[in-house]
């Protein structure tokens, strides 16, 4: 593997990492603070992407579509919390999994009914619709750099919010010991709702960012949800910092692994066997990583509860 390829893969890994972080951030808080398993979190990513496409159709302006999509994603998140999830907090995990899985089916089918089954696209905004020559003969789109920058900026913003604001303090406290926070007279339901809406909006933001690169289609969030769960388990449930580091780690391992695995196998096997084994091994890598992390740190890298 050439250094060029390594460089490109590092950029791609970072990009996947920040998208994963945006999804995982909400998931880890919802899981950590409320002890609530929300399988429908990935579908918020799809909702964000579809909303952006819909609003772009109306406004024909990328940023306007993004802002409207974020507000609508927030509204949909809050509505789901109020109508469905609020009723599930005190029930066992199986009920939560069943009900939120139902929400996935419902929203995927709704997207298909409203927008049709064929993949849609969101055009890249004109002011980012260029590429620069990364190496001889290969252009790298500015938009992908913008995704990384936007993701890192949101991570920094979240850090400030969680570390240096009162709500952030309550969220951290809630993740470590929700009963105590409640006993101290904090309206935990309202806190849940804020966390939930915000998490849904972040996942929607990831969907908007991803829409111009990937295709917008029903079920697009389902694969990412599984990876997002891997991220929050590696990072430690309830920890934003853990989610950030684990997301970048998983993004890099997954992306680099895809190119390296086949090449590595070629050292041991002939080309056609390597072509068989490499891709199979590559798709297992993040789960192997998760198993390894759990072996040494059963509560993840930065467990929120352990700090209490």
């Amino acid at each position: 593997m050439s250094t060029t390829l390594l460089l490109i893969q590092l950029l791609n890994g970072l990009q996947l990492g920040v998208l994963l972080f945006l999804i995982a951030a909400g998931l880890t808080l919802v899981f950590g603070v409320m002890g609530f398993i929300n399988l429908a979190h990935g579908v918020q990513y799809m909702v964000g992407a579809y909303l952006a496409v819909a609003f772009y159709g109306v406004t024909e302006h990328f940023l306007a579509a993004m802002v409207l999509a974020l507000l609508a994603a927030l509204a949909i998140g809050l509505a789901l919390e109020f109508l469905v999830f609020r009723r599930l907090y005190h029930r066992d995990h199986l009920d939560q999994v069943l009900a939120t899985f139902g929400v996935i089916l419902f929203l995927n089918q709704a997207a298909k009914t409203i927008f049709g089954p064929t993949p849609l696209i969101l055009p890249t905004p004109e002011w980012l619709d260029g590429s620069f020559l990364l190496v001889e003969g290969l252009l790298y789109p500015w938009y992908r750099i913008a995704v990384i920058v936007a993701g890192l900026a949101v991570a920094a913003l979240l850090y400030v919010l969680v570390r240096h604001t009162k709500v952030g303090m309550l969220v951290r406290a809630g993740a470590a010991n929700p009963q105590m926070v409640s006993a101290l007279g904090v309206d935990i339901e309202r806190l849940f709702m804020i966390v939930f809406g915000f998490g849904a909006m972040l996942a929607g933001f990831a969907g908007v960012l991803a829409a111009p690169i990937f295709s917008v289609e029903p079920g697009m969030g389902d694969d990412l949800l599984i990876v997002a769960f891997v991220v929050i388990i590696i990072g430690g449930i309830g920890s934003i910092k853990g989610a950030f580091i684990a997301a970048l780690l998983v993004g890099l391992v997954d992306t680099l692994g895809r190119t390296l695995a086949t090449d590595a196998m070629k050292l041991f096997f002939d080309v056609s066997s390597a072509n068989q084994i490499g891709p199979a091994l590559a798709s297992m890598l993040i789960y192997i990583l998760m198993a390894a992390v759990l072996f040494f740190r059963p509560t993840g890298l930065f467990p929120a509860k352990g700090m209490a």
Binding site: S2, T4, L5, I8, Q9, L11, N12, Q15, L16, V135, G137, L138, R144, I213, F214, D223, T255, R258, T259, T262, V271, N275, G278, P279, A282, S283
Partner: peptide, 21 residues
């Protein structure tokens, strides 16, 4: 080069880099 990606692959930039190379 004969490359195989997972079904439902999202980001082809690694494969594209290999094509360019």
């Amino acid at each position: 080069e004969e490359l195989y990606t997972p079904l439902g692959h999202k980001d082809f930039s690694a494969e594209i880099a290999q094509m360019a190379a």
